[in-house]
Design a binder for these strands. Structure first.
Length: 696
RNA sequence: GGCGAGGUAGCUCAGUUGGUUAGAGCGUCGGAUUCAUAACCCGAAGGUCACGAGUUCAACUCUCGUCCUCGCUACCA
């Protein structure tokens, strides 16, 4: 494939619903930034595009909860996120936002274009409708009991407890979050993208890289997991997807009779890349179409693995359907970053937030960049631990890179008043070391070009290693007593290495690069003899054990419920938010005693238990309710083994209407308590009771 | 259960189209050194490449099966 010169690089639009954590940075933004810095260093024409994704029901809900407008929510988060990026040196050409006028116009035009082409189908379906507020409820506006894990408070699109995606009508006991009442089903019309029509060309494109009969990209350069997941979707048959929603926060559907409808976020958000590019082009005297409609432009999307389908299938369909637009030449998706042995979870607060990191480690953004690149989840999930962070900073950045620079500069100041000494006759060794500068740079750039950022950074570090070895081998501190001319050459070469490091490390460690160029007092690709250096400081500082222990402590403390203090006998009562468990679900609406006594809850004993033959999460239980012996199917298989539950006395709702679950009729429901982490416990009488005893 | 991606030295990870003694960094142990943030430099130990079959002259690399991890997906009255 011929070398292309223009690039449009996008990084996933962060959802403006909260701040950023380590996983975000490692997954998409850092690799994108490294790639862009490399491209720019090579003189390519690059547009590095990102922005806040500010629509969607999750944001309107949050606004409601916090008693402010959606705009206020996204304004606040947009600033926090934008600041995190700029603090960490993620150097977007534009960081735009989807709430902007330009984006609304762009997304709206896009929809209209496809609508007029007949790219969509229209379907009327039943959706929940809040009669009191006279409006349809977006998925997020309906809560209820999750049909999968039974936890209360699941949203209509997703249960945050068990992570399964849902449809609002799946919810048990659905409640409108607007009025708190049970919504009714009412017909509404929405537009769908018939993805099934695009299977054929997508399959060819994903598998071979051929689009419209032309080789568009080389699939062997795509990561396995990206091709694998896209193929998996295509081979299983694509379904039409609804691309509009009944909601008042978002891009209005630009069609008559679509009042109260907006574009669904995943249709609207990727178009945000385009509107951001338009804004950037307008601000900088460029033509945005060069970056989206020219076959000589490479479009590359940096994302996390949760976004593969949108960028590998859905957005390409939209772009191709529109026509004129180029399709991505690559979608380098990273896997996930785990944290101290657990997956990162914002709801459990098991995360390291970027803005908090900088408070605890001021001016250490490159240290984090370095470590996150070293452990980047490029081919599989990887793990961040604070201990590892400390080790990599201390043993690599400080001991190898910082130390070499410091040695070179200190010796030069000591022997030559901080002036770059001249090169004399070069030995074979000198020549080898000098030539390794260019060979290292080539290797590093080649690795970056193939999205192997981790290897690229390691390669860069070997040049600093070589520097240390060079000094150890040539021992200028000894030679200075006998052969000052030789020492001049040695230090000249050492300083050239330092200078090269400042250039080669720039994509990875921009702050350090700048700092080092400051020490060297140079921006040039080589240092001339006689050039005056500045007084150096330390490039990196060691991270002490205490700082690391404090982080580990912090993580454990904030993520687990506060322990109750001994001796304390009274608790503040009544005020919301004063509870001992801040993560407890809010109380449901008040009911009457009559409502309550409709439920017939009894003590029952589990007589037998076996795994449901056709399901992973279900146990088939035989229970003695005192009234009868019956079968109950319960979703507890991930928490209890069959042999562990036999003989247990439990509480059971016995007059619940029977229902077939995965082929087995279940009569009743075993009551379970759930804690913050989603683990379950039986509600058992504290002493043995008669089966059939009422629970009141 | 289905589909996808993984399971390689104590740790974090590389291993391209199957080919001599399986690699890197860190950690460990030993040595050398003192210009340097007790840092650097040299050397060594350490792996039945998850497990079991099969194809092959030859398999970490291909095929099948089993187990485990992660993601998507189905079941949680």
């Amino acid at each position: 494939m011929k070398e292309k010169k223009r690039y449009t690089i996008t990084a996933a639009l962060p959802y403006a619903n909260g701040p950023l954590h380590l996983g975000h940075l490692a997954g998409a933004y850092l690799p994108a930034d490294i790639f862009v810095r490399y491209l720019k260093a090579k003189g390519n024409d690059v547009a590095f595009i990102c922005g806040s994704d500010e629509h969607g029901a999750a944001i309107t809900l949050r606004a409601k909860k916090e008693g402010c407008t959606p705009q206020e929510i996204v304004d606040k988060n947009h600033e926090i996120i934008k600041k995190s990026f700029s603090n960490f040196g993620i150097d977007f050409d534009i960081y735009h936002r989807t709430s902007s006028k330009l984006h609304h116009e762009t997304a709206s035009d896009f929809f209209k274009n496809l609508y007029e082409k007949g790219s969509f189908t229209q379907e009327t379906t039943e959706q929940f409708f809040d009669q009191e507020h006279q409006q349809f409820l977006a998925d997020r506006y309906v809560t209820g009991t999750c049909p999968k894990c039974n936890s209360a408070g699941a949203y209509g699109d997703q249960c945050e407890k068990c992570g399964s995606s849902l449809s609002p009508t799946d919810l048990i006991n659905p409640i409108s979050t607007l009025s708190g009442k049970t919504p009714v089903l009412k017909e509404t019309t929405h537009w769908f993208l018939p993805m099934n029509k695009h299977e054929k060309w997508l399959k060819t494109w994903i598998e071979t890289g051929v689009l419209d009969g032309k080789q568009q990209h080389n699939p062997s350069e795509w990561r396995k997991q990206v091709i694998g997941q896209c193929k998996s979707w295509i081979d299983n048959g694509l379904q039409p997807r609804s691309i509009t929603r009944d909601l008042d926060w978002g891009v209005k559907v630009p069609v008559d009779g679509a009042d109260g409808k907006v574009l669904y976020v995943w249709f609207d958000a990727p178009i945000g890349y385009i509107s951001a590019t338009k804004q950037w082009a307008a601000d900088n005297g460029k033509n945005w179409e060069d970056y989206w409609k020219d076959n000589n432009t490479q479009l590359i999307h940096f994302i996390g693995k949760d976004n593969i389908v949108f960028h590998g299938i859905i957005f390409p369909i939209i772009l191709k359907e529109h026509g004129d637009f180029i399709l991505p030449t690559n979608v380098p998706a990273n896997e996930f970053l785990n944290l101290e042995g657990d997956k990162i979870s914002t709801s459990r607060n098991w995360a390291v937030w970027l803005h908090e990191y900088l408070e605890d480690f001021p001016n250490k953004q490159d240290e984090l960049r370095y470590v996150l690149t070293s452990i980047a989840p490029e081919t599989k999930d990887s793990e961040f631990t604070w201990k590892d962070f400390q080790a990599r900073v201390n043993n690599e950045l400080v001991a190898i890179f910082g130390n070499f620079v410091n040695r070179s500069l200190v010796l030069t100041h000591k022997y030559f008043e901080g002036k770059v000494p001249s090169q004399g006759t070069l030995t074979e060794y000198d020549k080898e070391v000098l030539s390794s500068i260019t060979s290292t740079q080539h290797k590093v750039y080649e690795l970056i070009a193939t999205y192997r950022f981790r290897d690229a950074q390691t390669e860069a570090m070997t040049l600093a290693r070589l520097g240390n070895k060079y000094l150890a081998d040539t021992e200028p501190w000894k030679l200075i007593k006998t052969d000052e001319e030789r020492v001049k050459t040695i230090l000249n070469i050492s300083l050239q290495l330092c200078n090269a490091l400042s250039i080669i490390f720039e994509p990875f460690l921009p702050y350090t690069s700048k700092k080092l160029k400051g020490f060297l007092n140079s921006n040039a690709s080589e240092l001339n003899s006689g050039h005056q250096l500045n007084q150096p400081e330390l490039l990196f500082e060691k991270i002490e054990d205490e700082a690391i222990e404090a982080q580990i402590e912090k993580l454990k403390k904030i993520s687990s419920p506060a322990p109750s203090k001994g001796g304390e006998t009274t608790f503040p009562l009544g005020r919301v938010g004063d509870g001992t468990n801040p993560k407890a679900k809010p109380m449901k609406d008040e009911i009457t005693f009559d409502d309550f006594i409709k439920m017939d809850i009894r003590v029952a004993t589990i007589l037998a238990a076996e795994k449901h033959p056709d399901a992973d999460k279900l146990l088939k239980l035989t229970v003695d309710t005192g009234i009868d012996v019956r079968t109950v199917v319960s979703g507890i298989a991930e928490h209890y083994k069959p042999e562990d539950v036999v003989g247990k006395q439990v509480s059971m709702l016995v007059n619940l209407a029977p229902r077939k679950i995965r082929g087995i009729e279940s009569k009743g429901m075993i009551l379970m308590a759930e804690n913050n982490e989603g683990s379950l416990a039986f509600i058992s009488p504290e002493k043995a009771m008669d089966n059939g005893g009422e629970v009141r």
